[in-house]
Each structure stands twice: as C-alpha cells, then as structure tokens.
C-alpha cells in the first residue's frame, strides 16, 4: 500500500531534521580557526584536570609529549549532557525543573529509538525475546519520559514567567518554543491516556514507517492525528531554533573552551594561521590600514614623520 500523508509528513520531518542539523554541524565545523580562548579546567588535561591545570605548567612544555585523557573529557561531557551538572551546581532551583524536562526528552528520544527497533523486529528480523524486552522498555521510557518532560516543561514556563531575571530577557519566540513543546507533550499525553495506553498504536505506526507500508497503520483518533502532525512540525522546527543547542554545545566546549591545541612550526595550526593572517582587514579605525592583510598590518610597522611607529 502506498504511504499515507501522515507517514509522508513523518519521513519529511525526520529528513528535514537530519539535513538541517547536519548543515548546522557543517556550518560550525567549517568556521575559521579562532585564537585560543580556552577556559580551565580543561577536562582532557591528564593529571591536571582535577585542579584545572594545563600543560603550560611545565618548563619547555612545547618540547614534551602531550598527556591527555579521553576519559576526563567524556566524564565532563556526560555529566553535563546527562545530568546538566553546571545548573545543578550553580542554579539548583532551576535544575529541579530543567532536569526532568531534559531527562524526559532524552527518554522520549530513547522511546523513539526503541519503537524503531521494535518496528525492525516486527518487519524484518524476528527475535521474540528481544522484542519482548524492547516492548517493556518502551513502556518504561515512554511513560516516565512524557510525564517528566511535561512536568519539567510546565515548571519551566511558570519559572520563565515568575522569575523576572529570566522573563526580562526572554523574547516572544522563546515563550512560543516552550508552549509549542508543551502542546506537543499534552497532545501526546491525551493520546496516550485516551487511545494508546500501552503504546501499541505507536508501535504499529512505527512499523508502518519502517516497512514503508501504510497497511500497518493503526486507525488514529483525531487527537492522535493532531499529536503526530504537531510532533512532526516540532521536529522540523527545532533545528532552525536555539533549541538545537545540543549542536552548539559540542562546539562551545570542544572547539572553544577546551581547544588548547598548540601551534608549533610545521603544524597544521601554523598552516591555518598563515592562511588566515593573509586575509584583508576590513576595519576602519584610524590605526588600521584598511584592506591590507592582518600580517601586513601587524608586521609592517608603519612609521610617522619622526620615524617612530605610527600605531
């Protein structure tokens, strides 16, 4: 059977999400190398990350092999990703709201993945024991996920409106984003309670998607249809907004705050520096030779009428 409109929308939402996220990733990845701007503690500094030290604590550090620890970096990364450590440490009252929200979303994402696995197991490979395990995991992740995310989302909305520190800095779109998510979650809860308490229809829906066959589609109620449509729109919308901060967060930490790669003669860093310092300077202040390269501006030392450096 051909695919239905809802299935087409689901495929499109997923594809747009992946494409836009990937293009953002490419955009951030292809930005020019910047000056070093690391901030300590840098967690990959082996033996020093506990107190925030760096390899610069060594005499002749540039001659010595770098000692880094992937485990240190992963520990910091996962404690931030999974537990939102910095909010826990520095703004605990907010953490009680933002953590269930984010943890709920992670569980919902896990729920999607499990639905997908279940779909594969239903359509292509039959492993009954695994299918059973996945079935129960779907119940756990879906139930906890949607409740936690909804409570967190409501809490964040209340906090956003009641905390002037936050409200005064909030643009309309940020309120809209929270309400958009809340509506998707609430329609999800309504669908779950009134139509799909065991996520049976969700599994069937995913089975249809995995099989590219609308014959497997369950008959959806209006609220379920509304939920699927809104959910798809949210998937499409997220990567265009700062709700996609999961992309930015990788770059802020790994490519800025933890980027301590050394420039030594003959290195790739040096080649990039050479290339970048050839760019023309567009700035207009009197001390800038506009149009000349960064290198020319920095190295040529323009002299005044007394033979002294002008700038």
């Amino acid at each position: 059977m051909p695919i239905s409109a809802l299935m087409a929308l689901s495929y499109a939402a997923f594809a747009i999400f992946v494409i836009v996220v990937a293009s953002k990733w490419v955009k951030w990845s292809s930005m020019p190398m910047h000056l070093r701007w690391e901030l300590y503690p840098v967690p990959h500094e082996a033996g020093r990350n506990q107190y925030g030290g760096s390899y610069i604590e060594e005499v002749d550090y540039w001659k010595k092999p770098r000692e880094t620890t992937l485990a240190g970096e992963l520990k910091d990364m996962f404690s931030e990703m999974l537990f939102i450590k910095r909010v826990y440490e520095y703004k605990r009252p907010l953490w009680w709201l933002t953590y269930p929200f984010h943890a709920g979303i992670y569980l919902i994402l896990a729920w999607f993945f499990l639905l997908f696995v279940h779909g594969i197991l239903s359509v292509y490979i039959s492993i009954p024991v695994l299918a059973k395990v996945v079935y129960y995991l779907i119940q756990i992740c879906g139930t906890i996920g949607i409740i936690a995310a909804t409570l967190g989302c409501i809490g964040l909305i209340i906090r956003r409106f009641s905390d002037k520190d936050m409200l005064n800095y909030t643009a309309g779109v940020e309120i809209f984003n929270l309400f958009f998510i809340l509506i998707v979650l609430l329609t999800g809860i309504a669908t779950w309670i009134t139509y799909d308490p065991n996520f049976q229809h969700a599994m069937e829906f995913m089975k249809a998607l995995v099989a590219f066959n609308s014959a497997y589609l369950p008959k959806l109620t209006t609220i379920a249809e509304v939920h699927v449509i809104l959910l798809c729109l949210l998937w499409i919308y997220i990567p265009f907004t700062k709700m996609s901060h999961f992309i930015g967060k990788y770059f802020t930490f790994h490519k800025v705050l933890w980027d301590d790669e050394l420039n030594v003669p003959g290195s790739k860093v040096e080649a990039k520096v050479r290339e970048l310092t050839r760019l023309p300077m567009p700035w207009s202040a009197p001390h800038v030779d506009t149009g000349k390269s960064w290198d020319e501006n920095a190295l040529e030392n323009p002299k005044d009428e007394w033979g002294r450096w002008k700038y």
Binding site: H34, L35, V87, W283
Partner: peptide, 29 residues
C-alpha cells in the same frame, strides 16, 4: 560577523550570540 574581519573570534562569538538560554545561571558567578 565576517571571516575577514573577525576570524580571530568568529566561531566563539556566533556560538555565544546564538545559544544563550537566558537562564541566568552565570549571573551569580
């Protein structure tokens, strides 16, 4: 906001402009 004008800090700047959640966790620091 250009590579020519600000290759030195373009990526860190744009990341910081784009992704602030206005949570104010930073204020008390």
């Amino acid at each position: 906001l250009t590579k020519e004008g600000n290759w030195t800090f373009l990526q860190p700047l744009l990341l910081s402009l784009e992704y602030c959640a206005k949570c104010q966790t930073c204020s008390n620091a």
